[in-house]
């Protein structure tokens, strides 16, 4: 973790009709850290990620990646500079085998810039790269799993596939939208080393999570959202001791 700010969010606001989904949210993410975003259901966490990665245009506010203003950029351009995301509801390409799912990010302009491989065909070089990435993320190379249709894989593997799709782009920042949700304890135990290894490789991770215990094991700093507002930020022990965070999760004691 360094002092360089890699993602800087300033005063993001978004309303859907009468609903204020995000109200003036600002935060900075430093290069190489794991930044956690927590909050009760409907507090605007996914909307925030959508705003940063370009899936939704924010009404107000700015997002900066390194020194570039990326607020109004289209999604593919933001992904092209290395700000990638996973989806909360997994979105694999159901009709393709798992390893062929990775051909699509590997075909993107960003991945082409890095890889010197030739593509194409039933046994092209991209297939080899895809299998390598899948092995790295926990698909056993010798098993049948990487060759199965992505739609038939269990949830744990689909979550990994979401991460693998990001890794194939050689990202600088990954926004992980609830990668632990819906997984069993043992599956989470298998995911945590992956997250830690990504951090060691110098990738900045922003993790949205409901599984607080697991998040606190890996995260450097935490931000808490409630009803679209930032209510606390800092080291996890300070955040969970914060009065407003307790109220948001457990309810207020005042009548």
């Amino acid at each position: 973790m360094s002092d360089t700010v890699i993602i800087s969010v300033k005063g993001i606001s978004k309303t859907f009709g009468g609903l204020k989904a995000l109200i003036d949210v600002s935060f900075d993410v430093f290069q190489g850290e794991i930044y956690g975003i927590i909050g009760p259901n409907g507090s605007g966490k996914t909307t925030l990620v959508n705003c940063i990665t370009g899936f939704i245009r924010p009404d107000k506010g700015h997002v900066r990646f390194r020194d570039e203003e990326i607020t109004q950029w289209p999604v593919h351009k933001i992904a092209g500079v290395g700000v990638t995301r996973t989806f909360q509801l997994m979105r694999p390409y159901y009709s393709l085998p798992a390893f062929k799912n990775l051909i699509i990010p590997l075909w993107s302009p960003r991945a082409k810039k890095y890889g010197g491989w030739r593509g194409g065909g039933r046994h092209g070089d991209r297939d080899t790269v895809a299998i390598d990435i899948l092995e790295e993320i926990g698909f056993e190379r010798e098993s049948r799993v990487p060759y199965k249709l992505a739609g038939t894989l269990p949830t744990g593997y689909q979550k990994r596939l979401e991460l693998a799709r990001c890794i194939a782009l050689r990202p600088d920042v990954i926004f992980c939208d609830e990668v632990f949700s819906g997984l069993s304890m043992s599956e989470i135990a298998g995911m945590i080393p992956l997250i830690e290894r990504l951090k060691m490789d110098g990738v900045t991770l922003v993790m949205i999570e409901h599984r607080l215990r697991e998040l606190f094991r890996v995260a450097d700093r935490i931000m808490a959202l409630n009803f679209g507002e930032k209510i606390a930020e800092g080291y996890y022990k300070d955040v969970i001791e914060d009065k407003r965070v307790k109220e948001a999760y457990l309810g207020s004691e005042e009548v």
Binding site: T53, F55, H76, K77, Y93, S95, I104, R165
Partner: peptide
């Protein structure tokens, strides 16, 4: 299969 994911892959 799903175009959102392709967009998120930088294409």
């Amino acid at each position: 299969d799903n175009d959102q994911s392709v967009r998120a892959s930088g294409i």
